[in-house]
Design a binder for these strands. Structure first.
Lengths: 228, 228
DNA sequence: ACCACACAGATCGTATATCATTTCAGATAT
DNA sequence: ATATCTGAAATGATATACGATCTGTGTGGT
């Protein structure tokens, strides 16, 4: 009894390789080799690629094939802007139903983030950052918006792998802003205010990255590191 | 030379039937009959259904098959809330680059809407309403957000067909709010304000529908009519 | 040297065939 | 009468096969 279908397995494999950066943007997804590697026929692989196409992770051309979506210069900006929008809304919608226990958990995570600032491990920091925000938005009662938040974060994973620069100092700021957000939720601040602050938190990161990469445009510096 | 692939044709057919309400929520999509009707094998039909699954228009169960997504009681609320969020943002982002010509066009459409209020044709009104808002958000520079707006409107089409009640008086209010939005864009009002008003415009419709259907819950009235 | 064309290899698109799973009706036992 | 079993029919899942289309390469002509 296979626990999952073959097309599901194909989907997961390709998806994970795109997420991990093993399949870089522009990489051609040829059916036969993938099928062979997974020990299945091309049919399930085709279905998997159709799903990925609908999720815009790969682009498709008739009789030519699929390739991992290319990221334009502005892609990162747009994704981050969209994530700011939906995550801000999700956080605000979730706020009223967030318990003291959840707040405590978020605060713990933020404390860990703060500690990890000295021996700075970008990957770990990003992971914790997602954990932190997850606590805040997972209670969002609107499943559509919540889904959009998840998609946004997943998209960010890919973009980070392809091209992203780290901004010094932003991590520290980020930790401080997290505390601000927590207090507002505790105090049951108006929904609109929470949304604005949560959105600004992400927009600030965006601005920081843009300003930094602008400054260093000609320096050619490129660290695989996140900004929170 | 077929201008489009068979799986594309299958996708369009099923999609249009869901949109038009011919395939109501819960309708089982059995591969063989659909394939036969389209004079093709089941393979392209399967691919089409995979795409629809990824777009959440149909739900899928292993070894059982696909059916048109069921709409929960809260589905309309969540969809409208999400649309309010993304359309508000799209309108605000588009506002700075909207020309006087576009404003004029929007105003014309709104005038037509106003006229059509007497001999009220719900379907026509909804159509014009989309036209009006399209003029405002199509210039949104963020393609992700714009895409979300389109998806939201498409989703609304389906929901309107399945279950929706009309709210008297809301159409008139709607036309007036449209004019308010136009003036703010003309005056180059702050982005945040435009977003808030555009969002409230849709949220107001949502509230109106909820209040109305609440009031008439036991009356069993059910008109296939829109609210703008 | 450069362009047009034709051919070959790669790859996709689809049909058909076969296997697997589910579902449901009817039989049987309790 | 109800519950459970069993097997056949319906349907989905996947493999294989073949035809269609694209893409690049080499050859011949100018």
């Amino acid at each position: 009894m296979s626990s999952e279908s073959k097309s599901e397995r194909a989907y997961r494999l390709i998806r994970s390789r795109i997420d991990s950066g093993q399949y870089v943007p522009g990489f051609r997804l040829v059916l036969a080799p993938i099928a062979q590697e997974l020990d299945m026929s091309v049919v399930p692989v085709r279905e998997a690629i159709r799903r990925l196409e609908a999720e815009q992770l790969v682009t498709f051309e008739r009789n030519v094939g699929a390739q991992v979506s290319l990221v334009k210069e502005t892609e990162y900006l747009h994704t981050m802007q969209t994530l700011a929008l939906v995550e801000g809304a999700a956080t605000a919608l979730a706020a009223p139903s967030i318990s003291a226990d959840q707040i405590r958990r978020a605060r713990e995570i933020n404390a860990t983030m703060s500690e990890s600032l000295s021996a700075f491990d970008p990957r770990r920091f990003t992971e914790l950052n997602l954990d932190f925000h997850s606590v805040l938005f997972e209670s969002c009662p609107n499943p559509h918006i919540l889904d959009l938040v998840h998609r946004g974060w997943n998209r960010m994973k890919v973009l980070r792998n392809s091209s992203f620069s780290f901004v010094p100092g932003r991590a520290q700021e980020s930790v401080e802003e997290h505390e601000t957000i927590l207090r507002m939720i505790e105090d049951r601040a108006p929904s609109a205010e929470i949304e604005a602050v949560a959105r600004a938190h992400r927009t600030a990161t965006l601005d920081a990255v843009l300003a930094y990469s602008d400054e260093h445009r000609h320096a050619g510096e490129r660290e695989a590191a996140p900004a929170a």
